[in-house]
Nucleic acid binder design. Structure first.
Lengths: 205, 205
DNA sequence: CGAATGACAGATATTGAAATCTGTCAGCTG
DNA sequence: CAGCTGACAGATTTCAATATCTGTCATTCG
């Protein structure tokens, strides 16, 4: 069998597995190289540092979520149907619910990758900053749509500003710092209460 | 000079100083005893464990803030005047601003006591839970007042539920986890945006 | 006799030496 | 000769021995 060429993508796949198995604290570059059947020097040919590798893996992982959410922000039905003319409020509500669900599942199903994400957070990584910017951008699309349709209003009608406020106000339901709280009973109700208050704050009546 | 009797209160005062000086990681019960000029056994006569002492100090410290805020939740003018008939919205806005300011100043001026508070948080201490319950209770008073005056409405008009939603939605501006963020430029604007959205969500129009 | 002491056992933290890991690079290999 | 290897230096982590701290309690002190 012709041994496949070592690509950055292949390294990322395997690194993700290694991180899943050992977690960010224990996984080493040598572990990754061993799993790939190469020397660790080869890994360094594709990623200048271990931090860069960690960032690239997390970016891939975060991008998968952002991609999912983009369907909603672009007006598609969350059930996966084709784009519809759903109200901005429904879109906003679905998007925030989907964000909460996505983060919660990531924390529960992939604790080690989630821990890796938290490492980046503590390092103030650009990757996390960009992920957040992307999410706020998606929110801004929904908010702007709401403004255009005359569904939403705000004192200062800058969609991005409002999007950031929505993002900040729902921090408890997507910021990794709160992950332990997401499995407690009553979170759902707390989330619903915040969401309802925020939606009412945007609604034109 | 008649050496004063060793009271719990005296121990708390001195422990606060010791914590301020050494921080929760370095301060020991022996340090506290030394500062009091007694043996550490005497401290244990008043507090069963070091954790209990730490909790008592933090409780005192948190209670001081809660007391300040109570003036606002009970309708007093924040400038310290006598109780007035200010609108519930003004009270709510002032209270949330005051909470943000109080936490921010505590984090900035008393980093070591703030760190002690964070230790309790990580221990899921009852003291912190009660502090939060007290704060939400104060918020509920303001919200209830708003309901009674016909200033506020909500889908489910339980003042405590709404109070909790307000508390959750402003977490980024009072939860110690975000303390580093409070000194960044732009926080004020972010806070104002969230506050404005929330107030609008409550307002009867 | 009630309050305080300090010696003590077990738990926790500190320290420094040894082991491992990261990142580089001269040389090897297909 | 492009891509990979593995020996190496410096950085970081681990580990075990040592020191310090917590919490108890028999004894002392006023």
């Amino acid at each position: 069998m012709a041994t496949e060429p070592l690509t950055a993508e292949r390294i990322l796949e395997v690194t993700e597995d290694v991180l899943r198995k050992y977690g960010p604290a224990k996984a080493t570059v040598v572990d990754v190289a061993r799993a790939l059947g190469v020397s660790h020097g080869s890994v360094y040919r594709h990623f200048r540092t271990k931090a860069a590798l960690r960032e690239a893996v997390t970016k891939r992982w975060l991008d998968r979520t952002a991609k999912q959410l983009r369907f909603i922000s672009e007006g598609a039905d969350p059930q996966g149907g084709s784009p519809t003319d759903r109200s901005a409020e429904a879109n906003l509500s679905d998007w925030l619910k989907a964000l909460f669900e996505a983060k919660r599942h990531k924390a529960g199903d992939d604790p080690e990758l989630f821990a890796t994400y938290e490492v980046l957070l503590s390092e103030h990584s650009q990757v996390v900053e960009e992920h957040i910017k992307e999410l706020i951008g998606q929110l801004a699309v929904i908010v702007d749509d709401g403004f255009r349709r005359g569904e939403f209003t705000s004192v200062r009608p800058d969609p991005t500003e409002v999007a950031r406020a929505l993002f900040d106000a729902t921090a408890k339901f997507h910021d990794p710092q709160y992950a332990p709280y997401w499995s407690l009973p009553g979170v759902e109700a707390d989330f619903a209460a915040v969401l309802s208050l925020l939606l009412r704050g945007l609604r034109v009546r």
